[in-house]
Every structure is written in C-alpha cells, then in structure tokens.
Design a protein around this nucleic acid. Sequence first.
DNA 1: ACTTGTCAAGAGAGCGATTTCACGCTCGGC
DNA 2: GCCGAGCGTGAAATCGCTCTCTTGACAAGT
Lengths: 363, 363
Amino acid sequence: MHRESALTNGATPRVGRGATLDAVAHEAGVSRATVSRVVNGSPKVSPEVRRQVERAVDRLGYVPNLAARSLVTRRSDSVGVVITEPTGRLFNDPFFPRLLRGISAELAARKLQLVLLMPETEPDEERLERYLLSGHVDGVILVSLHGDDPLPGDLLARGIPVVIGGRPATGIAASYVDVDNRDGARAAVRHLVSLGRRRIATLAGPLDMAVGSDRLEGYRDALAESGLPHDRRLEAHGEFTYESGASAMRRVIHAAPDVDAVFAASDLMAAGAMSVLRAAGRRVPEDVAVVGFDDSPLAVTTDPPLTSVRQPVEEMGGDLVRLLADAIDREIRTVRHVLLSTELVPRASSVAPAQSRDNAHGG
Amino acid sequence: MHRESALTNGATPRVGRGATLDAVAHEAGVSRATVSRVVNGSPKVSPEVRRQVERAVDRLGYVPNLAARSLVTRRSDSVGVVITEPTGRLFNDPFFPRLLRGISAELAARKLQLVLLMPETEPDEERLERYLLSGHVDGVILVSLHGDDPLPGDLLARGIPVVIGGRPATGIAASYVDVDNRDGARAAVRHLVSLGRRRIATLAGPLDMAVGSDRLEGYRDALAESGLPHDRRLEAHGEFTYESGASAMRRVIHAAPDVDAVFAASDLMAAGAMSVLRAAGRRVPEDVAVVGFDDSPLAVTTDPPLTSVRQPVEEMGGDLVRLLADAIDREIRTVRHVLLSTELVPRASSVAPAQSRDNAHGG
DNA sequence: ACTTGTCAAGAGAGCGATTTCACGCTCGGC
DNA sequence: GCCGAGCGTGAAATCGCTCTCTTGACAAGT
C-alpha cells in the first residue's frame, strides 16, 4: 500500500549535470557502444540487452548530450528561421505567429529544433551570417527577404540548404514557398466584377516586393479578362499600412470620383480606405464595395466586416519545412517552388448594393 | 612543401565543411591553444601573433564549431523560449512578435541564441521537457503559462534557470516579469471617472489568468477610490475575444441600461462592445465612453479610435532576458519580480461628451 | 652570474557521443 | 566434424574545442 516510487528503490535518478553514456553502460553492464545503439534504436541489439539498457537509462534519467552527438554526426538537428522585418507587417498582422506555428509544428514532427533569428542591427546581421555559415544549423528558412540581401546566395554557396518564404524579388536560385498572391487578387477583383462593379480601384502595395506587385498584376488580370478598361486613375500606391491606405484612397476619390469598388492590397489599407470613404460620405458597401487581403483579425472587427483573401499561412510554414527537410535529408539540391492557393472570404463590405439593401432586411 | 601547397595557395577559403582550429593553427604557424585564445579574445597573446592568427582565420573563413565548444564549456549559449498558447491572444494581437523582438534583441546583445519552442500536442510537451531538462539550453523563458503546468517546477528542481513572462497563476517560486495590469486598469478607469462618467462597466477577462483578474481588481480599485458604488450589474465576464466582448456588452446594457462608460479588458473586447453599442443606438463616446487594453493596432482602426492602455511588451522581453542572464551568468538563484508600468493612450472613444460636442466643433 | 619572476606559447588531456572494425559465438551445410 | 556466415558486442578512434599545466625566453633582482 505504500507508494512504489521509482525513487525509493535505490534508484536515485542522477539529476543535475546529467548521466553520461558511460554511466549508463556501467549501470547496465555493457559497453558504451551498445548503449548508443539502444538509444538510437539500432536493430542490432538483442532484446534482453536492450531491456537492460533501457532500464538503466530510466534509472539514471539519461538524456543524450546533443553537443557531443552533433560533434560527431555533423548534424545539429536544428534549423534557423531568419526573420528580417523592420516593422511593417510584423506588428499589424498575425502573420508571423501563424507562420512560426506552422513551421514549429512540422519541425516538431521531424524532431528538429527551431532557432529563431531576428537581426535588427548591422552587427546583428554579421553575427547572423557567421552563425549560419558555420554549420550550426542544418538548414535555413528565410522569411520576408529584402530584395538585395546577399544572405541566401552566401548560404547556398557554402552548401547550406535554404528555403525562402515568399517569392524573393530578385532571381535567387533557391526554393521558395509563396502564396499565390496574383491569383488571390484576381479572385478578389472578379468577385467585385461579379457584383456589378465597373469602376474598381486598387490600393497597391510597394512594388519592390513580389507580394506588392503580384497583387497589382492580379488586379490588372481580372480587369482585362472582364473587358474593363485599364485606368491609371484607379491605381494608387501605398505601403500596406492603415495611413497609406487612407491617403491612397483619398487620391483615388479625387482622381476618379465615380469609383464604385476598391481592392486593397492589405486589410490594413482597406481599413484606412473605409474610414476615408466614410468621411467622404460614401457608404460601404452600397456606394463603394471594399475588399482587402490577408484576412487578418482586423477584417472581422471593421464596420462593416471586411471581405478579404485568406492565405494559408500555417500551411506555408509546413511546406517550408518539408522543402528544407528534403534538401537536408535527401540532399536534394533541386530548386523547387510551391505556390499556395488563397480563398476569398466574403463579408459585408462587398455585398452588392441590391443585396445589402433588399435582402439584408428581408425584401 | 607538399603539405603547404593546399594552404598557402592563398586566398582559397575552405568553404564547405569548415576549417577547424587545427587548420588555422597550421596556417598561422602556431598551436591550437593560441588560436583558441585569439578567437576567444584572451589578453595573453602578443599583438603580432594575434594579427597572424586573425589573418589566418580570415583566409580560411574559420568559424568555431559550437558543438565542440559547448561540449567542453558545458554552455550552449542559447536559451529556450517556450510559448504554450493554444490560440487566444496569439493571433489577434501582435503581442508575441513584439515580445520575441524584445527577447531577441537583448539576447543578441549578449550573444545568446534563441531556441523557440511551441509545443502543441502531448508528445510535443514530453519531448520539450526532455529537451530542456537535458541541459541543451542554458536557461528557459516561459510565456503564457497554464495555471497548473508542472514544467517550471521540474526545470527549477533540476537547477535550470527559469523566468516567466506574465505572473503565473499559481505560486511558483520562479522569477517573473509582468505588466502592471492592475495599475493600468486603475488608470483607465480613473480616466473615465475624470471624464465625469459615473456608471462605468467593465468587461472582464477570464479570472483564472492573472491578467484577467488583475485588470478586474484595478477596475474595482478605481471605483472604490472614487467613491463610486460597486455594482455587480456593471461587471460582465468574457474571454478577451471580440465575440465575448460583444456578448458581455449586451448583458451589461440589459442589466444596467444607464451605463455611460465601459472599460474592456482587451481591445478586442472593446471593439466587440462598440459594435453592440452602435447597434443599440448608443453613440461612442457621447453616450458611452469606451476604453480598451493592450493598445493593439486594432485600437487605431476602430471607429472611433479606441482609448487604450499600452504595455511595454518589448521591454518585458528585454527584462526577461536580463533576469535570466543574471541567473545563468552570476548563478543568482534569488526569485525576483519585475512589474512594468503601463501608459494610457487617450483616443476619441473616450472623449468627454462636453469636449466632443462643444470643443470639437469649436464652441 | 645565478636565481627568480613574468608572460607568451605549446602539449595534451579530456568533454560525451558515434561508428568502424575486429572479435567471439552459434549454426547449418557439406 | 570443419568452415564460413551471421550476428551481437566491445575496443578504440575520432569529432573540434577548451583549458590546465608545462615549457621556454627574456628581464630584473641579489
């Protein structure tokens, strides 16, 4: 009836600076080599010996020393995730938490560790490069890369596997995973067209980032395929932020007062646009329908809630890891690209005038 | 002669599987020990030799192998950051990006690496604990801890330094850094009182989290010190989310129709509340003033913009690292607590009726 | 002139794992 | 009844670095 603690049985677990392979070998009466085999699941160990060793491992609370292992295997079993984002999206959008979550989950499934690197200063960047180049990680995931960053090239040159989240602006010969921004934008604009809108404006993001130019291309695609004229006055540029969305909207209203729909390159821009529209006395969606991009939490809290394009961010994280793991494990050096499809999430900001007027209150 | 040919052929850096200490030693014509001293900045090296070695290091592109170093120093120079957050704040608030940024910056300044761990499943948690217990990190930062998590206790028992972000619900003998939520709430409610509001409601967060109960306490403090009666009908509970803020607001309006101000425990709840108020025909801030908490980006995009309480999240990250580093470097095992003060950011959602009516349009 | 002190530099012993290779042992085939 | 084959196990060689201890050179003290 007394509690049978594993501890009382003369089995004081060696806490503190852990037991070594050697200690376990002694305890189990075998050689280090055998213990190593058991720990690493080699099939070449007889069942009895295996059980012996496993008991000894438990008894001593043995956990392998990664440093020692990595010294000989030349593997660190960890991958670096580099996020170089000054501010921007980082704080206004749960993009990074979601991405990290996706990455982390897939990494965990493969028993890899995630080393997060967020360089901020110049010296940081230098140390970062040294760190990564020195093979202390088995591979690197690069997120939100600056156009001319030499990092991926340097890493690749040293034979360190690299994958990039988001299509890099310049043509680096590295694998990447990207959201199909162009197609997402196309779908958003098609949606507006299908609602009967004809004077559709876009508030585009920075064109030096793929995500910015892709969304603009998608907008143009959809207009073209719908036979709508391409009108420069309906295109304004900004920075993905609330304020820049607002000011872009002001410019559009001024240049093209007959605008009846807006496709914004981010939810934040869309929110800024809506506030400007309201101030200008335009009703959303009756007078002007609005669609954003990202499907951030913001989209649900605006008034009216914002139609937006959802990106599979977690999935992107998972794919990044899969690509990288292939490169590491199977030494696949082929450059591969993954394009993830988006999903339009319709909300009240883009309901057709007819619907919002008649249907909403049960016509 | 032969021996040198590979090396002296000048500038060819040994790319690929890096140069070793030994290689550098050869190149510079000194012993490994000397190279090690140079690399680690020991003062006991003559200037000429130092220069020699530094040149060799450059030439070979030498970077120390962390695994080998860590094997002998028993230091990994990395700290684990454990985030156990199912969903909640994680995706609706840039809390984690900001925190990670704060942590990362301070870590970088101390040349420590950040190993991010986000366990999601049960097996994840087990592996996590093994990983941390086995001394592969020098210390651990725990964020958004569940009330009854055994992890901090286990780690502490093994002598691994632990610091916690956010005051843990149960009384764990670990250092923590927290935002002074109670004081922040107090300030928010005082602000409402100073605006002449008398029927101030609160939409509280979950009480099983310190952050939830602290903010409620602060609310009560402020009412008490202002001599306002404590009225249960003015207290509704929710979950920090938009929807729960909305439904809590509905309950308050029903139970206390004369409510003239609301202090919500999060911006998200405040946003939910505002939409309900609007639907109920109450104007914000004229009829009901609203204050949120967190000063999330959301606060700027609501209509009207939301008065909120700003938390020094980056600073919190920095303090976490400082506390942890003290524990690691100086072996300080004293339990310490840091409480960071908040700042009220007034916006249009809480302007006094007099001001918003008379002043705004120039009385 | 001989000892003593100082300080730069080298030699070598680990750190804790993996892994190759060699070694007995047991079997089945002839 | 002898001989590889097959298989489990151990011995020992690394992996790349740190760090103590020792050595050697040179200057100064007596």
